[in-house]
Amino acid sequence: MEILEKIAHCVEFGKINKKSPYPPNMRNEDGADEYVKEALDSGIEPNDVLKEGLMIGMNKIGVKFRANTVFVPQVLMSAKSMSVGMAHLRPHFISGAVQRKGKFIIGTIKGDLHDIGKNLVAMMLEGNGYEVIDLGVDVGADKFLEAQKQHPGSLIGMSALLTTTMTNMAEVIVELKKVDPTQKVFVGGAPLSQEFCDKINADYYAPDPQGVIEYANSLLQLAS
């Protein structure tokens, strides 16, 4: 297996580093941590490590998650593997050797403290080459507006787990679109539906993280 493939494989199956006991069939083998370092040391372009290694692995796990063949624990293991690999790339992001696809502002809506889903989406976006600005939980219009101002041209996503907080999204969307009518807003969370998304004038509803990534990528394609 070529090293970039090995990196993708480690991310897909959640092999963080040599020390990690998971997955059992890869015990005592190198993980994403070791392979990314090795790849960079051998002179492979950081950009290729990201796009042909880490991102491929995250994409594969995203597709499996959508198909319900893996669940949150497996995705978190993959995301962890990806992030230890990303740590080696950080200097190259700063130097500009690796370009990110775009910025994505994300937060759980005001009144809501649930962040498992929001975090999963953030991790998947990061693993797909986006810079994620995570505003955390209980985020109101003011914080979203400030982030929109600081990071113009970003995509914005918000999540809710409660039927009572999901309605708060409507107001934030109005405010964001007042500032920038072309602002794209993504919504998600267990009680949401396409019907609700249409009602509050959001641009996209995704029932799973992979949907967010695919729609974000399609917007990028349209723009280029």
Partner: peptide, 8 residues
């Protein structure tokens, strides 16, 4: 949520 990774 650490519990999810601790399962593994």
């Amino acid at each position: 949520t650490d519990i999810f990774m601790k399962l593994m």
